[in-house]
Design a protein around this nucleic acid. Structure first.
Lengths: 110, 110
DNA sequence: ATTATTAATCGTAATATTGCAATGAACAAA
DNA sequence: TTTGTTCATTGCAATATTACGATTAATAAT
């Protein structure tokens, strides 16, 4: 059905999976890496950088914006994108807590 | 098209996105959390625990197994699942490195 | 041997995601 | 005002994902 039954999970489980889904495409990973690398706003060169068509990049940016992990500020004709540091930090905490569940693990089995 | 153009990204970018996709569903997050919580093998009660149909759980387990994040060992009629600690650690390093890109960031903008 | 239990697989339906051409909106430059 | 630039949106086609009923395979219990 392609339809996730979100109501049967905890808010945290849904939140983790939504962030993960955000990283679940190499183009979005590449976009975020580039934004960090550039270390300032990126004004439009993402299309050249990544190599997908402009509408496709725009769609990926929209998803990242929807997660609030990036911001877009209009600057004349172009738009400047950058990481939303605050949100990124929050996201990182949530994801780290999940990834570090193994430190509670006492023994191996099987 | 629903078809990701993996050839245009680096191996690392593809790897990150594949792991992320693995966490990109709350049922799989719940499965992993449960495996950590139980701290030993889980022999079949995942269906009761999560609340999805047995074939659906089986399918999610298959994906996690394919990523090598969990292992399944046959034990009589049932199958015992547990975290693959080694692989989890490797995955965690890769994901952490990505999540920690913000510590290289010097300044805010926009 | 028959029956019960457990979990994988198959088949199928519904929804989601990915990608891009075409178009539109907003602004700058001429 | 016209033209060019930049990016968002729309519409559509193709593939992927999610979910589950039905079935199968393997073993255990009787």
């Amino acid at each position: 059905m392609g339809l996730t039954k979100t109501e049967m999970y905890t808010d945290l489980q849904n939140e983790i999976s939504l962030f993960a889904k955000g990283f679940g495409h190499p183009a979005r990973v590449a976009i975020l890496q580039h934004l960090f690398k550039i270390n300032t706003c990126v004004c439009g060169d993402l299309v050249n950088e990544i190599g997908l068509a402009q509408p496709t990049i725009s769609q990926h940016l929209k998803e990242l914006k929807h997660l609030n992990l990036i911001q877009g500020n209009v600057e004349g004709t172009s738009v400047c994108y950058c990481i939303n540091t605050k949100k990124w930090t929050k996201m990182k905490e949530i994801m780290s807590q999940f990834l570090n569940l193994d430190i509670l693990k006492k023994e191996d089995c099987c």
